[in-house]
Amino acid sequence: MSATKNGISGATLDLAAIGHALTVHDVQAPPTSPEWARWLEEIGFIDGEYVMLMARGLPGGDPLVVRIGQSTFALRRAEAACVRVASVAQPNVEGCKA
């Protein structure tokens, strides 16, 4: 997932810096639990939505506190790893859909 696509870094949400404003690029569920993609979309992880990592739990940095749109959710690291993010500074994020 380190490949760069359409000029957007393939960084995933679990690796993001705390307090850094990001947008959702896309959601890719692991093959073992494909239903996660829909569930994440339902709670707001949709292309272009604002997202920010708020805090990490202890020990081991798991689970994570994530601001998605106007809601706050607790996600495990594995769940956050499904969400690829882009920096907010990227213009016209919505037009970059794969």
Binding site: S71, A74, A78
Partner: peptide, 11 residues
């Protein structure tokens, strides 16, 4: 099996 958390933290 890993079960998802995805739990809302309301205001």
């Amino acid at each position: 099996q890993v079960r998802p958390l995805m739990m809302e933290l309301p205001s």
